[in-house]
Design a protein around this nucleic acid. Structure first.
Length: 423
RNA sequence: GGAAGCGUGCCGGAGCGGCCGAACGGAACAGUCUUGAAAACUGUCGUAGUUAAUAGCUACCGUGGGUUCAAAUCCCACCGCUUCCUCCA
């Protein structure tokens, strides 16, 4: 939710943002008007209500003879108040409808336009080349007996899989390494619920146009989360948090569930796009003025992980039109996937400024003791999908896969995953 | 799943349909005292909306409805918590 003060003081800034995103900017004028109207109606109601309160007070202290007349006057006032309240409520609903539709104001300087208009910030590492015909992760997974897609489909349907043996251990190793890294940088580990209430799902901004992406359990009125970001953002909902000693940072581990409703036919091979995977997510609550620096910190940690996994990657500054509604800026890092000869997203880090926190009502006290809305940021530190890049990048001619050195301590020192040998 | 009880401010804990935004105690903060601290004393001490305003007004006592001139207080529904029984990783 955008700041209503900004709407009053500088609607042009919001319009510029809407334009950069390719969104409708006339909605901003509508909102300004609705806001003025709401305030007018609210004042009318409050004046009447004050009158009513005063009148009701009189009844209490009135004598027996005076009472009937006063009560009758009160009844008339009560009618008026009720009517005025309805008008004010309707005006507020109308305003909220408009204001909730306006997406976060993007940070100045980010590229305008759609998905293809990103800016490449940097490329790191050299794209892996092979002097043999490289296999894709599906073939490697089968050969090494570490990814069992066939049985995943048998048990749960398309886009499901089993990680087996070294595959399962590799994922856990990666998660543990990521958690160690995060812990060293002041992130508190958190294993989060994956079923959340509608208010929390709505508060994080996922129930908008992407609601068909989300699994819903009608019998319990709960949503399965597609990322622990949802639970992490809801964690401090309706709280006044203490940021005087620095930001609150969490590293949330959870399984993530996605319906992938809009992507039928896309990435159907392998485990690149699946209904269920695991993820370690960083999340920061911070003072708004420090948010941009924090964003760079999250990105730096993501890069540290990518480098520890010895992947080659690039970092992009996502264009305005490709941002989620809550994000003001988003850095993605994409690893080189040899079998596809292209970069694929492995991490995504968003600065949501105060947009998400305002919806969830997360505040802090500034130096003067005044409450202010906090800023929130999130970023990926590891997901199941990383296995795709790791396996494909580090494969060898015989189909074995070299384990990056940084991961070995988490795998009992294992250096290579060898093809399964049939007895 | 069955039974009972409870949901009030940072915490504990009162609260009669009007005098309750809410007693009292604690915590916290500021001051006095002190070399400093503790103790004691004094004061401050919820959140938000509206407004030029730290003036006023409005709203909030789990949530949403209802009754009433007037609701923390009465009624209904929902949510949550606690205890006991049952069951169970």
């Amino acid at each position: 939710m955008i700041d209503s003060n900004l709407l009053r003081e500088n609607p042009d800034a919001i319009k510029a943002s809407q334009r950069a995103r390719g969104n409708d900017e006339s909605i901003v004028d509508d909102a300004v008007q609705a806001d003025a109207n709401w305030r007018k109606c609210l004042q009318a109601y409050e004046t009447l209500r004050a009158e009513q309160n005063a009148a009701a007070k009189l009844v209490g202290s009135a004598s027996k003879e005076e009472r009937p007349a006063l009560i009758q006057a009160g009844q008339v006032l009560a009618e008026k108040v009720k009517a005025a309240l309805e008008v004010a409520n309707a005006a507020e609903v109308h305003l909220n409808e408009l204001i909730w539709k306006i997406e976060n104001v993007v940070i100045e300087g980010i590229p305008a336009g759609g998905e293809e208009n990103f800016t490449v910030i940097k490329e790191v590492g050299t794209k892996q080349t092979f002097d043999f015909e490289p296999r894709d992760h599906v073939a490697l997974g089968e050969l090494l007996d570490i990814i069992d897609i066939e049985r995943g489909v048998k048990v749960s349907g398309s886009r499901f899989y089993f990680l087996k043996g070294w595959g399962a251990r590799l994922e856990l190793a990666m998660m543990n390494m990521a958690l160690d890294l995060a812990s060293k940088h002041d992130f508190t580990a958190l294993i989060t619920p994956t079923l959340v209430r509608p208010e929390v799902m709505a508060g994080t901004g996922f129930l908008g146009e992407h609601s068909d992406e989300i699994y819903y359990l009608p019998a319990d009125d709960l949503y399965l989360t597609g990322t622990s970001e949802v639970a992490l953002a809801g964690y401090h909902r309706d709280e006044i948090i203490d940021l005087s000693a620095g930001p609150l940072r969490y590293a949330g581990w959870s399984t993530c569930y996605r319906r992938e409703a809009g992507s039928a036919g896309r990435d159907t091979r392998g485990i690149l796009r699946v209904h269920q995977f695991n993820k370690l997510e960083m999340f920061s609550y911070i003072k708004p003025e420090d948010a941009e620096n924090e964003h760079l910190k999250l990105l730096a940690l993501e890069e540290a992980m990518l480098q520890a996994c010895e992947l080659s990657y690039r970092v992009i500054d996502t264009a305005a039109g490709d941002l989620g509604s809550s994000a003001a800026r988003k850095y993605d890092s994409e690893a080189w996937v040899p079998s596809q000869q292209t970069y694929r997203e492995l991490t995504s880090s968003s600065n949501c400024t105060t947009y998400q926190a305002r919806r969830l009502n997360v505040r802090y006290r500034d130096e003067n003791g005044k409450t202010q809305t906090a800023a929130t940021l999130n970023g990926t530190l590891a997901t199941t999908r990383w296995l795709v890049a790791i396996l494909e990048t580090h494969q060898q001619a015989d189909g074995s896969v070299r384990i990056p050195a940084a991961l070995r301590p988490y795998l009992g020192g294992q250096e290579v995953i060898e093809p399964k040998v049939r007895a």
